[in-house]
Design a protein around this nucleic acid. Structure first.
Length: 220
DNA sequence: GACCAGGCACATC
DNA sequence: GATGTGCATGGT
């Protein structure tokens, strides 16, 4: 991998598909809730859950923190894993209120690594969720890795077969400038490509290149 | 009806 | 440290 290659891939994707307008959420808190609800779940289902929370006037740290578990679980039911996700939302809020008095704006002042490490200490927030929050809710430069990114990079032999999360993240962060806007757009574009042009096996067996527009595939 | 979706924690070996 | 399993809805 090289800076030139990664940058070329990004430029081609951006020129072809344009800005993806991520994260699809209007406030930092909505982005955080969305990141937890999106775990291993189709985004359309997450939207239904978030809309339920909005209608119930619960999309607010204080209100969600004080909400009843069963009521919260029922509202987020469309997102799947609703019991465990209700607990994970509560875990985040318990940490937020115990550590920062429920004040999200205090998190903005933390440096990138400190925020990341503190988020990872919350039960239910793993690497991808923490990094999504750091990048998309707080605009700090972390490159988010997800299943689509690993699939695309793996299919094109751009990562080692068994590469773990941190190894893949290191590839992007080593060869790209630490730019929030770039990290935001690149990851969103990879998700879009994964959804539309790099289907799971066996449907996509042996043919990932053909599923990308030709002018882009030739550079992978 | 099977498979998939923008993971994570925990048990077990 | 690697591997397997539970969590669950809704779209294709």
């Amino acid at each position: 991998m090289s800076t030139e290659k990664l940058t070329k891939i990004y430029d081609l994707l951006f020129d072809r598909f344009g800005p993806q307008h991520w994260w699809p959420g209007q406030t930092p808190f909505e982005i955080i809730v969305g990141a937890i609800l999106a775990q291993n779940t189709n985004w359309t289902n997450v939207e239904k859950a978030i809309n339920n929370l909005k209608r119930a006037n619960l999309l607010d740290p204080d209100k969600l923190h004080n909400s009843n578990h069963n009521r919260l679980a029922e509202l987020i039911r469309p997102a799947g894993y609703y019991n465990i996700k209700a607990k994970r939302l509560k875990n985040f809020l318990s940490w937020l209120f115990e550590t920062y008095d429920g004040n999200l704006s205090q998190l903005e002042n933390l440096d990138t690594d400190s925020l990341r490490q503190q988020l990872l200490g919350i039960n239910g927030i793993g690497l991808e969720t923490a990094d999504s929050i750091v990048l998309y809710a707080f605009n700090k430069p972390i490159f988010v890795i997800d299943a689509y990114t690993c699939r695309i990079m793996g299919r094109h032999c751009l990562i080692e077969p068994g590469a773990d999360y941190e190894q893949v993240r290191d590839i992007f962060e080593s060869f790209l400038p630490s730019d929030v806007k770039l990290f935001n757009e690149f990851h969103a574009l990879l998700v879009m490509v994964g959804k539309n042009f790099c289907k799971p096996k066996p449907k996509c067996e042996g043919c990932p290149l053909e599923l990308l527009p030709h002018e882009i595939a030739e550079y992978f």
